[in-house]
């Protein structure tokens, strides 16, 4: 067994870095939106959140409307050194959010309220943990997923 110490990942200097406070702010907005979705069971609102997740997953978390709000209204008020992070962890989290939003919307369109509630519940769980506790979804589930999928 030979080890690859050339980490393609997290630590090379080539990775794209973004302001780490942006995704955390976006997670707070997402938490609020998903909380309203969970109570109102609104298909329209989950569809809008789905679009936001899709932008975050494909274009990047710095391209979402929530990131725009952060840059426009929050960032100018923040001072001190800008904490940066690799763009890939929050982008991964947006992809997972997108999957839950798709399942939730499917539950809504197929009139399966339990599916809708469970999917939104999981998305809210992750978004809240991200916003309140700086929870790193990719850290906890990515390796497990790879271990299951790759033989």
């Amino acid at each position: 067994m030979t080890v690859q110490n050339e980490v393609s990942a997290s630590t090379t200097n080539k990775v794209k870095l973004i302001d780490a406070r942006g995704p955390r702010f976006s997670a707070a907005i997402t938490t609020l939106v998903l909380a309203i979705v969970l109570v109102t069971q609104s298909p329209l609102l989950i569809a809008l959140q789905l679009v936001v997740f899709a932008i975050g997953a494909f274009a990047g978390p710095a391209k979402t409307p929530y990131a725009f709000l952060f840059k426009k209204f929050v960032k100018p008020k923040l001072h001190g050194q800008v904490p940066t992070e690799d763009v890939r962890p929050p982008q991964f989290a947006q992809s997972v959010g997108l999957i839950f939003a798709v399942v939730a919307l499917a539950g809504s369109l197929l009139s399966i309220p339990a599916l809708f509630t469970v999917a939104v519940g999981f998305a809210l769980f992750a978004a809240f943990l991200n916003a309140a506790f700086n929870f790193c979804l990719g850290c906890e589930i990515y390796l497990i997923a790879v271990r299951i999928i790759k033989k």
Binding site: V7, S8, A9, S10, T11, A20, E85, D86, R88, P89, P90, F92, A93, C136, L137, G138, C139, Y142, L143, V146
Partner: peptide
């Protein structure tokens, strides 16, 4: 230390 691509705290730990 084991790290992965979708992990922000990996950089800080390293």
């Amino acid at each position: 230390q084991f790290s992965s691509a979708f992990c922000s705290p990996c950089r800080a730990t390293k």
